[in-house]
Design a protein around this nucleic acid. Structure first.
Length: 838
DNA sequence: GCGGACTGCTTACCT
DNA sequence: ACAGGTAAGCAGTCCGCG
C-alpha cells in the first residue's frame, strides 16, 4: 500500500466545502491511536484520519479514586490515569461517583488475562475501542462530514423539505420532537456513491470435497476474479503446466501469470484502487487466504493491504463487505428480503434474488480447463457484484442506513446481528446522556422477576394470543392489525429496562396488566423514547412514502429501504430484552410488552364482539372480521386510537378466506386477486416439487373464485386435478428430483444424539460416500422402501421410491384446504373402505 | 414379540 | 445469539396383550 499520507497534505489542494463519508474506524497499535476511514467521493479513495485529541481507552470503577491510584496491579496492567466523575445511574435514578480508569491501549482494558477488567469490577469495559471512539466523538458512521480545522463536522443539516417533514410531527412533545429531528437528520442525509469491486478466488486443492484451510494457505491460488462497479471485469490466472490456452471471452479479460506472487501483487493493485471490496464469505475464506498465502510466498507486509482480526477481514484503505454474513442475518432475510431466499449459499441466495445461480461444474476444479475455470471463477464474482447492485444498490444503501441507526461502521453491521446493532445504538445513547451503562448482573439483580407462565414448555414467559379459526370458507373478510403493536406498547407504556420495576415507591401502583410489574411515572424510559420515535417516523413518513404513486420509482425504492431498515430495529427491539445474551437483558420488559400486546388484543376482540362484528380468526395483532360494513370498522379503529392510543389499520381485504381448524394455517384471495397462503404445507420450502406443483394448480383454480357458484365449479376442477396427480404417482410419471424433500441440517450429522431424523439418515449416507456435510447444508432425499426409509437424492434410483408415502403426503397437504371445502381426498382417489383394508 | 398410544425431537412456519 | 406460539412427521418408548 502507499505510505500514510498526512490528511492535511491531502487536503491542501481541496476545497473547504468538500465532504467525506465516514465509513469506518479502527485502532492502530503501532501509533497507539484511533483512526477514521473516510471516503472521498470524488476520488473514490479512502483516507485515514488519525485522532489528534489524545483520546484513550478507558472504563469505569466504583472504587474510590485514591484506592485505585495506589494499586500497583492496575498500573502494571496499563492504567495511566484516574479521574473522578459523576455519572447518572439509570437503575437507581440518581447520580453516583465513579472513577474513570484511562489506559494506554485497548488491550489494557480487556482482552488479556491480566487486563484491568479481569482484576477489578469494571463498567463499560467491553465496548470495542473503535466504537467507543465514535460514541465519544459523536461521530455517526455512514454520514457525510466536512473537515474544518482538522475537526470533523457533520455536513448534513435539515433543509426545507426536512423541515416540512418535521411539521408532520408537530403533535409530538418537545422531547420527542428533538429525538425525531435527530433521526430525520441521519435518515435524510445524502447517500454516498461508493465504487466497489467484488472478489472471488479459486484454490487448487488436492481434496475437492473440503474447503482449503485459510490459516494454512498451503495450496496455490490459481484464479482470482474481479468485477468492479466501474466496469472492470478481469480474471487473473496462474499458468499451470499444459493448461495454457488462448481464452477469448467478451465478458472479461484474462491475464496469465507465471508466478503466483506476481499474480497476488496485481490482485493487491486492483484491491487498492477500490474503497470497497465485496465478497461472499471473504471474512472467513478469500481475504485471509490471500493474506496468508502472500505471507507464505514471502511478500512483504507493506505489499499486503489486508487486515485480519478476530472480527473479520478488512483492508488498509478500504472497507470490506462480506455478503455471506449479511445475507445470513436472520433479520435481513426475513424483514428486508421478505424470506425470498432460504439457503445461505451463494448459489441459493443468487438464484432467489437474481434468478440465476452459480455455473454448474461436473468435474473437479483441478480437472477444468483454463477457460472453464476462468468462466466459473468470473461467474461467482459477477454474482457477488450483481447481488450488491440489484435494486439500485439496495444492499449498500441498506447497510449505510443500518450503519447510521446502529452507530456502527458498515463492516461491523455486516458482522453482527440485530442484538449487536441495538446494543450499539443504546450504548451510544447512554454515552450521549452521561448514563452509566449497567452490567447484565446489575439489571438481573433487581429485575430478574418473571410473573407469567409460557404455554410452550421451556420458554420464559407468556407470549401472544392466537384465536382458534372458525373453519370453512368465508366471503368478505377484512383484516385489521395494530401497526407495530410491540413498539407502540414500548412507546405508550414507557417500557425500558430502567422504568419497568423502577426504584420509586410512588410508581408501584402503575401496574402492567396480567403481571406484577409496574412502570415509572416520573422518568421517560430511554428505550421507550427511541423506539417510539423510530416507530412514528416509520409509520408516519417512510412507510406511506414507500408506496406513494406520486413519487418516482427510484424515490420509492429509497423510502422502502429506510422503511425496511427501521422495521428491522422495531421488530427486534422487543425480542432482545427477552434474550439472555443481550447485555441489557431485562425479562420484565419483554414480558410486559407481550402482556400489553395481549391486553390490547383482547380488548379489541371484546369491542368487536360488542359491535356485533363476527371474528373468525386473529393472531397476536391481527383480527379477521367477517363484514362488509366499513362504517363499523372505522368506528372500531377510532375506538382503538381513543381508548388505547393504538393505531388499528386495515391491513388486507379478502374476497374470501379458507380456514381449517388449524391456527397459523390459511389461504385467502385478496381484493387485488392475490392468493395469500400462510403456513400450509404446500407452500413450505422443504416440500417436494411434485407436491408443490399439484398444490399450486389448486391455488390457480381458487384464484378465480368470486362467489359461491364459482366455488362449485372450482371444486370439480380441484377434484379432477387431484385425481390426475394421484395417478401420476401411481404410474411413476415423475422425475426423481421432483420427489426430493430439501431439509436444512442444523448441526453436523454426528451431533444428533437423541434421534436420527430422516434428513440426518440421508446426510450420514452421503458422508459415508466422502461428501462433507456441515451445519446449514440443505439435504435432499427421497422416501424409499429400503430399511432406512430414505435415500439421498444423489444416490437414489426411481424404482426405490415408496409411492404410498408420497400419496400420504399429498393427502395431508391437500387436506389442510379440502377440509374446509367439504372435499374428501380418499373419496376422490377412489380409496373405498374395502380398498383401504387391503 | 408386536402394535397402538404417547412423548419428545426436529424443522418450518406465523406474528 | 431478538421473542413466543403452532403444525407436522418421525423416532423412540411404554404398555397391554394369553
Amino acid at each position: 500500500m502507499s505510505m500514510n499520507k498526512n490528511l492535511f497534505d491531502y487536503l491542501s489542494n481541496e476545497k473547504d466545502e468538500d465532504i467525506f463519508f465516514l465509513l469506518g474506524s479502527g485502532y492502530d497499535g503501532s501509533k497507539g491511536k484511533a483512526y477514521l476511514k473516510l471516503l472521498d467521493p470524488r476520488k473514490q479513495e479512502i483516507i485515514l484520519l488519525y485522532d489528534e485529541t489524545n483520546h484513550k481507552p478507558y472504563c469505569y470503577s466504583k472504587i474510590n479514586i485514591e484506592e485505585l491510584k495506589n494499586r500497583e496491579d492496575l498500573i502494571k496492567a496499563g492504567a495511566i490515569n484516574f479521574i473522578q466523575e459523576k455519572k447518572y445511574d439509570p437503575l437507581i435514578d440518581s447520580y453516583i461517583e465513579v472513577t474513570k480508569i484511562i489506559a494506554s491501549d485497548p488491550l489494557s482494558i480487556g482482552g488479556r488475562k491480566d487486563s484491568i477488567r479481569e482484576i477489578i469490577e469494571t463498567w463499560e469495559s467491553d465496548i470495542p475501542y473503535h466504537l467507543n471512539y465514535l460514541y465519544d466523538m459523536n461521530l455517526i458512521p455512514g454520514m457525510p462530514y466536512k473537515i474544518e480545522n482538522g475537526i470533523l463536522k457533520m455536513a448534513s443539516s435539515l433543509n426545507e423539505i426536512n423541515k416540512m417533514i418535521i411539521e408532520k410531527f408537530n403533535n409530538k412533545n418537545e422531547e420527542e420532537k428533538k429525538e425525531i429531528a435527530k433521526w430525520l437528520l441521519l435518515l435524510e442525509a445524502e447517500q454516498p456513491e461508493i465504487k466497489y469491486v467484488s472478489l472471488d478466488l479459486e484454490v487448487l486443492s488436492p481434496i475437492s470435497t473440503r474447503v482449503p484451510n485459510p490459516a494454512k494457505a498451503e495450496y496455490p491460488i490459481i484464479s482470482i476474479a474481479f468485477v468492479g462497479s466501474d466496469g472492470l471485469r478481469r480474471v487473473l490466472m496462474l499458468k499451470i503446466k499444459e493448461n495454457i490456452e488462448n481464452i477469448e471471452n467478451k465478458e472479461f479479460t484474462v491475464t496469465f501469470f507465471n508466478n503466483e506472487r506476481e499474480m497476488l501483487r496485481e490482485a493487491f493493485n486492483i484491491l487498492n484502487k477500490y474503497p470497497c471490496v465485496i465478497t461472499f464469505n471473504g471474512d472467513d475464506f478469500d481475504l485471509p487466504y490471500l493474506k496468508n498465502r502472500a505471507e507464505k510466498l514471502n511478500m512483504s507486509k507493506e505489499e499486503i493491504p489486508i487486515i485480519i482480526s478476530k472480527e473479520g477481514a478488512s483492508l488498509e484503505r478500504g472497507v470490506h463487505i462480506d455478503l455471506y454474513r449479511f445475507f445470513f442475518n436472520k433479520s435481513i432475510q426475513v424483514y428486508a428480503f421478505g424470506n425470498a431466499y432460504r439457503e445461505n449459499t451463494l448459489d441459493g441466495v443468487a438464484k432467489s434474488i437474481l434468478g440465476r445461480g452459480k455455473i454448474e461444474i461436473l468435474k473437479n476444479l483441478s480437472e477444468l480447463s483454463s477457460k472453464e475455470l476462468a468462466e466459473y471463477n468470473f461467474g461467482d464474482a459477477l454474482l457477488v457484484h450483481d447481488l450488491a447492485t440489484i435494486n439500485n444498490n439496495l444492499v449498500i444503501k441498506l447497510l449505510i442506513v443500518l450503519s447510521r441507526i446502529s452507530m456502527m461502521p458498515i463492516e461491523d453491521v455486516c458482522r453482527h446481528g440485530v442484538s449487536g446493532w441495538i446494543k450499539s445504538l443504546l450504548y451510544y445513547e447512554h454515552r450521549k446522556r452521561n448514563y452509566l451503562i449497567p452490567r447484565p448482573e446489575d439489571i438481573i439483580k433487581e429485575k430478574g422477576v418473571i410473573s407469567t407462565k409460557a404455554i410452550i414448555e421451556g420458554k420464559k414467559y407468556r407470549g401472544a394470543i392466537v384465536v382458534q379459526p372458525f373453519p370453512g370458507v368465508h366471503f368478505n373478510v377484512i383484516v385489521l392489525d395494530f401497526a407495530s403493536l410491540y413498539p407502540s406498547a414500548l412507546k405508550i407504556w414507557n417500557l425500558s429496562y430502567e422504568t419497568v420495576r423502577c426504584p420509586h415507591s410512588e410508581c408501584k401502583d402503575n401496574l402492567i396488566p396480567e403481571t406484577s410489574h409496574w412502570v415509572c411515572k416520573k422518568i421517560k424510559g430511554l428505550q421507550s423514547l427511541i423506539i417510539g420515535c423510530l416507530r412514528d417516523i416509520r409509520v408516519e413518513w417512510y412507510k406511506p412514502k414507500s408506496s406513494d404513486k406520486n413519487l418516482t420509482q427510484e424515490k420509492r425504492i429509497w423510502y422502502d429501504i429506510v422503511q425496511k431498515a427501521l422495521k428491522v430495529f422495531l421488530n427486534a427491539s422487543y425480542g432482545v430484552f427477552g434474550a439472555e445474551a443481550f447485555p441489557l437483558y431485562c425479562p420484565p420488559v419483554a414480558e410486559s410488552t407481550a402482556a400489553i400486546g395481549r391486553y390490547a388484543f383482547k380488548k379489541a376482540v371484546e369491542k368487536a364482539k360488542e359491535m356485533n362484528i363476527e371474528i373468525i380468526y386473529g393472531d397476536t395483532d391481527s383480527l379477521f372480521l367477517k363484514t362488509k360494513n366499513y362504517e363499523t370498522i372505522e368506528k372500531l379503529i377510532k375506538w382503538a386510537k381513543e381508548s388505547m392510543g393504538l393505531d388499528l389499520e386495515i391491513d388486507k381485504i379478502y374476497n374470501y378466506v379458507v380456514f381449517s381448524s388449524r391456527k397459523k394455517n390459511y389461504l385467502g384471495v385478496t381484493d387485488k386477486g392475490i392468493v395469500d397462503v400462510k403456513g400450509l404445507t404446500g407452500k413450505k420450502r422443504h416440500v417436494p416439487e411434485f407436491i408443490k406443483k399439484a398444490f399450486n394448480e389448486m391455488l390457480n383454480e381458487l384464484k378465480n373464485v368470486k362467489n359461491e357458484e364459482d366455488f362449485e365449479i372450482a371444486k370439480k376442477k380441484i377434484e379432477n386435478l387431484i385425481r390426475e396427480w394421484y395417478f401420476k404417482l401411481k404410474r411413476g410419471d415423475f422425475a426423481l428430483e421432483e420427489l426430493a424433500f430439501h431439509i436444512m441440517i442444523s448441526r453436523k450429522p454426528e451431533k444428533y444424539m437423541k434421534t436420527t431424523p430422516q434428513h440426518v439418515k440421508a446426510a450420514k449416507k452421503l458422508k459415508s460416500k466422502g461428501i462433507d456435510i456441515v451445519a446449514g447444508d440443505i439435504i435432499s432425499f427421497v422416501k424409499t422402501k429400503n430399511k432406512e426409509g430414505v435415500e439421498p437424492l444423489q444416490l437414489a434410483r426411481k424404482d426405490q421410491i415408496d409411492t404410498e408415502k408420497y400419496i400420504e403426503y399429498l393427502r395431508s397437504t391437500f387436506e389442510q384446504v379440502l377440509d374446509a371445502l367439504g372435499i374428501d381426498f380418499n373419496n376422490i382417489v377412489g380409496v373405498t373402505s374395502l380398498e383401504s383394508f387391503l
